[in-house]
Design a protein around this nucleic acid. Structure first.
Length: 616
DNA sequence: TTAGGGTTAG
């Protein structure tokens, strides 16, 4: 009707009363509007600013702009769009974006960032792809978030490499922000060497780059690397901050080295970042993960401004250290103190029940959650998995299976995995097979499900099925995770694999093992060969068992660690029956406490008894 | 008008 330029101008001279009847604004906003005679660009900006937190009002403004039949400048839409992104309403932002004529790179960046910040990584990647197809040139602001999106999703791995190639093509690979994200991506892909190369060749390694690398290592199972970087940072003269210390503490928790963890906390004191609730929680969690439950209890009582994370950490701490009663009474104390549990707290409570086989109490907590009106603590899929674990491991496999069938949400691999784990413990081949069938569909690449099922067949002597399953794994390229145990001694980590002879002290370690076995056998020890899942003769089975990684680690610690310290072993998988018995005997023979952390809980061995009461 | 790093469970 009008040439575009004129129409645009018209918008700004539309008298305000025309707008007012349909808009329901606060009195403050209305005053603001009345003060302006016409809706000038400044007035419009002001109007948007005053509605920035109100999605409804923003939508009304957009609606008015559209129904006024006037063309809208990109600038105005940009304002609206950034507001919607800030409010997390990505679908509305996307609608606005699609209405725009040739949006500039800045807007593409804004949208990608919005998607990533709201965990919509696929959408972020597809926007980038579209940008690429349309020939819009990305800039240094585009890539940090594109790479982050690729890092977060396994499906986007290939896209990550493409993005890296693009970064190089546009000459942006020396931009600190871009390179930091690339580094994180490669750590997550398990390419630590390449991540390290990117870090070494960074022009200026600032605090954020150090932190990103240390945190990425700590979060992706490279605790030793994280700690060595932390030490290197200290000697390079860069002052650590709370983020650095939290990552270092988390690495210590993973590695089970609380002495080093306390040295890290000393630095927090020097830097004046102790009494920071996040750092204090990280320290608490570190002691929990090292099995120092008394130290953790004391620290917990000393933390002044405890938050829900402190309480959850402590509840879980009791649960995994075999003190379920304390976990549950702490939960009651928390509620008496007027704190509301969140979904993690409930996971801790349910896992406390699960570790001790407290079925009726578990049901009570689960029902309490289900009846809660608060959306935040309605049971999620993880809570269902916890219940299946509790029921199944307590021997109520049928009940667990019926529970799964009655679930209001679709069971995922976590839920079926819990059932399979329980079936393996109780030796229920039939139900195990059923769970495994579901798991091979839902999570075909996960080695541990194949291994669990294969072990069950082996225990039942069904070697035909074992071989079939192994073939299937080979075909799919699913590789079993090798079991290892590690012991920290004098700041170094000694890692042992089954049958390992690579340690410099191997000879005396094996001698020590021999003499231990002799003593144990005289006390009535018989090896539990049902933990060896290979079709070999009994004698050979005994040999394989006798060199399990945890046994080597314990022998190493007995030789090296002073008698005033307990023996601490960290294992990456679950402990087997025979090693559990072995550890009980050793704790009795050697009069040493053995604190062993397996994949999901602690075993504190003292004088021939384990804190798990042989239920795990 | 835009950018990179953090704690709690299984």
């Amino acid at each position: 009707m009008f040439p575009r330029l004129i129409r645009t101008k018209l918008l700004f001279i539309l008298p305000l009363p025309l707008f007012l009847p349909t808009l329901k604004f606060s009195s403050h906003t209305q005053r603001l509007i009345h003060q302006e005679k016409f809706l000038t660009k400044e007035a419009f900006t002001k109007l948007l600013k005053s509605c920035a937190s109100n999605s409804f009002q923003l939508k009304q403004i957009h609606g008015l702009l559209v129904t006024s039949g006037l063309s809208i400048k990109n600038g105005l839409i940009t304002h609206l769009l950034t507001n919607f992104i800030a409010l997390g309403d990505l679908s509305y932002a996307r609608q606005l974006f699609d209405e725009m004529h040739k949006p500039r790179t800045f807007l593409w960046n804004t949208l990608i960032r919005g998607y990533v910040r709201n965990d919509l990584h696929n959408e972020a990647a597809s926007i980038y792809k579209q940008m690429h197809l349309l020939g819009v040139r990305p800039d240094a602001f585009t890539f940090p978030f594109v790479i982050k999106a690729c890092t977060e999703l396994i499906e986007l791995r290939a896209a990550g490499s493409t993005a890296h190639a693009q970064v190089v093509k546009y000459g942006l690979d020396f931009v600190a922000e871009v390179r930091t994200e690339l580094m994180i991506m490669y750590v997550k892909l398990g390419e630590l060497g390449f991540a390290d190369f990117l870090f070494r060749t960074m022009v200026e390694k600032d605090l954020v780059a150090w932190n990103a690398f240390i945190a990425a290592c700590a979060q992706n199972g490279c605790g030793i690397k994280a700690l060595s970087l932390f030490r290197e940072m200290g000697s390079s003269g860069i002052q650590p901050d709370a983020v650095t210390l939290v990552s270092a503490l988390s690495a210590c928790g993973q590695l089970g080295c609380s002495d080093i963890g306390e040295e890290v906390y000393d630095i927090a004191r020097e830097e004046g970042i102790d009494c920071n609730i996040i750092v204090d929680n990280a320290r608490l969690d570190m002691h929990v993960k090292c099995g120092n439950i008394e130290v953790a209890t004391k620290l917990f009582d000393e933390i002044r401004h405890r938050n829900i994370i402190s309480w959850s950490t402590m509840i879980v701490g009791y649960a995994i250290n075999g003190e379920s009663g304390k976990a549950l009474s702490l939960f009651s104390r928390m509620q008496r103190d007027g704190l509301r549990p969140n979904h993690v707290t409930y996971l801790g409570v349910l896992s406390a029940c699960s570790h001790a086989g407290l079925v009726s109490q578990g049901w009570r907590y689960f029902n309490r959650m289900s009846q809660s009106n608060d959306d935040n603590i309605k049971p999620r899929i993880e809570h269902y998995a916890c219940m299946v674990d509790l029921l199944g491991r307590s021997g109520r496999l049928e009940e667990a299976y019926n529970f799964i069938r009655a679930m209001p949400i679709e069971p995922d691999s976590g839920v079926w995995g819990a059932l399979l784990g329980a079936c393996a413990k109780i030796q229920n081949l039939e139900l195990g097979q059923l769970a495994a069938d579901r798991l091979f569909e839902l999570a075909p690449d996960v080695a541990s499900y194949h291994v669990l099922m294969s072990n069950m067949y082996a225990s039942a002597g069904r070697w035909d099925f074992v071989n079939k399953l192994r073939q299937r794994m080979r075909k799919k390229g699913v590789r079993k995770i090798a079991a290892y145990s590690s012991v920290e001694f004098n700041g170094d980590f000694h890692v042992f694999y089954g049958g390992d002879r690579s340690h410099p002290q191997s000879e005396i370690i094996y001698e020590k093992l021999d003499s231990l076995f002799k003593q144990m056998k005289s006390m009535g020890y018989n090896s539990k060969t049902n933990s060896v899942y290979h079709d070999v003769e009994l004698e050979e089975k005994e040999v394989m068992l006798s060199t399990h990684s945890e046994k080597l680690a314990i022998a190493f610690a007995l030789i090296n660690v002073g008698p005033e310290h307990p023996i601490r072993v960290v294992k990456n998988l679950r402990i087997c029956d025979d090693c559990h018995t072995f550890s009980k005997f050793v704790s009795k023979i050697s009069l040493r406490d053995i604190i062993m952390r397996d994949k999901i809980r602690f075993h504190h061995f003292r004088n021939g008894v384990c804190s798990c009461k042989d239920f795990w």
